[in-house]
Simulated scan of single mutants.
Amino acid sequence: MTDSNLQIVLQNIHQRQSIGHLVEPAPNAAQLELAFQAALTAPDHHRLKPTRFIVVSGEQREAFGELLAQAIQDLGEIDSAQVERVKHHPFRAPLLILAVTQIVEHQKVPEFEQILSTGAAIQNLLLSLQAQGFASMWRSGAVVESTLLKEKLGLKRSDLISGIIYVGTAAKAIAPRAEQSTQDYVRTWSVDEY
């Protein structure tokens, strides 16, 4: 990799931010395919491929909002204002991608590794979308635990909805992320310390 290519890759990683106000345009089918291809290169012990994606876009967002409202009520939410708020969540962006971890029983690959694999896939997805000029927000919340939601999405109870990724174009310019010192987060281990 040339120095200029390396700088482009690092700049893309360093500039990634969650952006909550997203508008059209959303990625087209070819752009989404690039992002999904990037996602599927995530580390994956024994190549179990536990990660799946479900795309919700256009007019389907309204029906998905209704489903989210049903799911949050199924979880015990009785505040009508909260239910109504959840119903409108899909309109935060022109496109939503649900990331799912389908846990595979494997004696050498614990569940947590499969969940981490999906997390890495999501990060690759976000970075690929950003490199193509799009913005995103990775959200979850109590609703992803809903058995009703899983059932309506054709998932098993053991499947985990690892996030709902909102995708579109940033409605306004966002200030660059402040550079962080790694000193508080990284240390070198030495046997002499213990």
Rank of each mutant, 00 (worst) to 15 (best):
A131I: 08
S162M: 11
I103R: 09
V55F: 03
R157F: 02
Q180D: 13
Q114A: 09
F91A: 13
G65F: 07
H21C: 06
P25D: 00
R85D: 06
K49P: 01
I174R: 10
N5V: 03
S146Y: 06
A135I: 13
G20R: 15
N12M: 11
I115R: 07
R187E: 15
E62H: 12
G154L: 13
R157I: 09
A42H: 02
L125R: 01
A39R: 02
A29R: 14
A142L: 07
K87D: 04
A39M: 04
S158K: 14
L6C: 04
A170W: 10
E113R: 07
V86R: 12
W138F: 07
P27C: 13
S128V: 05
Q37Y: 11
S136T: 13
P43G: 06
V56C: 01
I174C: 04
A30Q: 07
T118L: 02
S128L: 08
A93F: 08
Y194Q: 10
F112E: 13
G168M: 07
E179V: 10
D44K: 03
V109Y: 03
H89P: 04
F134W: 08
A142R: 08
L126W: 06
G168T: 11
H21T: 13
I161D: 15
A170Y: 08
S158H: 12
E113I: 05
A175R: 12
E145A: 08
V86C: 11
R92L: 12
F64W: 09
D184G: 09
A38E: 09
S181Q: 15
H106R: 12
I97N: 01
A131R: 06
L40I: 09
A99S: 14
S146L: 04
L6E: 09
A29L: 14
A170F: 10
V144W: 01
M1P: 04
D44L: 02
A135Y: 08
